[in-house]
Design a protein around this nucleic acid. Structure first.
Lengths: 338, 338
DNA sequence: CATGCTGTTTGCAGCGCTGCAAAATCGTAG
DNA sequence: CTACGATTTTGCAGCGCTGCAAACAGCATG
């Protein structure tokens, strides 16, 4: 069942059938109808493989995330898949586990050419330098907290501001001993560092000192890390009365520890998270959080990537900021927020 | 940078380069070395598009799930992706939202041929009949609770037994008023119905009557459904003292409602879930659950699918059962389980 | 009725690889 | 030294489609 078969039945050239199938301009209504009829009659469906080869494009984009089972990413992915499909693109999903080598390979087109036409990439293990050293011909959009060097687009929210707002929210509640869970003071921890900066800024604005001993690092941003760090904090002489967690998962882990120790949230310790994942809305108590506009991030990323793929000369790398907002729930405001 | 370029540099035919690149047998060590050197020198990487066209296979499999942000699926997906990659296959992920039409399209090769060589499918909206009416040439492995009609493989756990065990666990705790949340007494709700059957069997074995008014249906298996159904149950004159939830998400939603109403879990109401998602381990309290061996399900599904793809004559459709176990946590056993 | 114009259709080459079968090479035995 | 089987290498065709540019309308104009 090839173009040629359809062409024969319709009494036109195969090139014309191709034109019809692809909705190209300049086809008479008469021929279009005749071809369409033949297509329907034979149940013809184009062979993507051949099309891809001829076009030199795969019609696929890769989305590279560190972890797939992280709700934040799977929620984001849904938006990306939807947006890509609308444009006739398929999405290949890749999980790197933050593995540096794996990440490097992927932004260099993987092990074979043309599997995907571009990448939406959420780096974890990769340094800014490694990003710069990538295959320059592979269209790239970066998510998260990197800064564009001008050769790719970067989509994210304003982390420093968001983190400052989160911290200010805790201060507004009258809390005085604020902890932060999730700092990563090393090269690849830029995301975390921006949040720490926001945390500090909030203190500075109020003229308050940062309780340095309550700023805790974690290797990742999930429940276990949060639970462990919280336990650590509670063992201090002067434990915190509020915690800024660098992700909702961390917050859920922290709450888990708190409740496990018989402490009340938020009465004894207020907890704020980051990401606004669905779990946080149905936890006990529901988690106050910074909510990035994920839909916007997803569509913007896809849009920019396809633009890059489509244009012969690479457009300049943009810094794109999606909006975010503070969503107050019970984990800081208490029952009245529910 | 094509095979031909490499061939020229190495002084062999392009076919030989192809043989080397693909690790085919019958290549002298000497030539292999020479070719490999040329490959490295030129940084040659095969063009997957061309390879796919020539081979008539895309090297991709589609995984079709109803919802991507459901932790159960994203956890399963990770295993599938890993298993597929090992075999040199890529995974295309598709979310259907349970849409019947979308599902039907996908098990008929989508809108174009050869995008994927086979499908791992977790049906939701599709009836048994629709499954049977699919494109018979598309290798298919079904996950979940369908029964194979002999033309595809089916991988799942023994839902009836698992559900019976879950229910028996509640009865063992001395609970007498058992509720079940998640029944779906209609054509496409087979998964739910098997669980309800297990729920009944447990009662029958003990010679106890099923409290029919405490068997609650829900359209889906997530938090909101669980929260709503639980609220509903608590408004009864004679509310349950134990609840069997047909997914962990439902259980989390139910617990949310319970705690919100000031009830204690498990003292007032014991809650058991299904799926053993990570969230359930870090919730308050941690959720007792039926834990399917997801790793096993994933690898089995991939293995069987690739076998189908590889063999000219379709192998018989198998019913494959992955093991499961009951994991007891605090939501039924109380603090001592933690 | 020739001319030029726009709009439509066509033919051909080729994307880069692999399947197939033939050709070349090698090693061994007669 | 020749013949033969086994192994290694090669040549060719073609997967099914699209890019390109040429060919062919159809139509209005001079």
């Amino acid at each position: 069942m090839t173009l040629r078969d359809v062409a024969e039945l319709a009494g036109v050239s195969s090139r014309t059938v191709s034109n019809v199938v692809n909705g190209y301009a300049n086809v008479t209504e008469r021929t279009r109808l005749r071809v369409q009829q033949a297509v329907d009659q034979l149940g013809y469906r184009p062979n993507v493989l051949a099309r891809n080869l001829a076009r030199g494009r795969s019609g696929q984009i890769a989305v590279v995330v560190p972890y797939l089972d992280t709700p934040y990413f799977s929620e984001l992915l849904q938006g990306i898949i939807r947006a890509a499909r609308v444009q006739g693109y398929n999405v290949l999903i890749d999980q790197t586990d933050g593995d540096r080598e794996h990440e490097r390979m992927l932004i260099n087109h993987g092990s074979s050419r043309l599997l995907f036409d571009g990448v939406i990439f959420s780096p974890l293990g990769l340094s800014q330098q490694a990003l710069a050293d990538r295959d320059p011909d592979l269209p790239l959009v970066v998510l998260g907290e990197r800064v564009s060097d001008g050769t790719f687009d970067h989509v994210g929210i304003d982390d420093v501001t968001a983190s400052r707002q989160a911290t200010e929210h805790l201060l507004d509640l009258g809390r005085t001993r604020l902890a932060a869970i999730g700092d990563q003071p090393y090269e690849t921890g830029e995301a975390a560092q921006l949040r720490t900066r926001g945390f500090r800024e909030a203190h500075e604005r109020r003229g308050l000192p940062v309780r340095e001993d309550l700023v805790i690092g974690t290797p990742r941003f999930n429940r276990v890390d949060g639970a462990g760090a919280m336990a650590h904090l509670l063992d201090r002489d002067d434990p915190p009365d509020a915690v800024f967690c660098y992700s909702d998962l961390v917050a859920l882990g922290a709450i888990h520890t708190l409740v496990g120790r018989g402490l009340r949230v938020p009465e004894d310790v207020a907890v704020i998270g980051y990401d606004d994942i669905e779990d946080g809305r149905y936890s006990n108590p529901p988690v106050t959080t910074i909510s990035p506009d994920k839909e916007m991030i997803a569509t913007t990323a896809v849009e920019r990537l396809l633009l890059r793929i489509g244009s012969a000369t690479a457009p300049p790398g943009l810094e794109l900021r999606a909006p975010h907002r503070l969503v107050v729930r019970e984990s800081t405001a208490g029952r009245r927020a529910g």
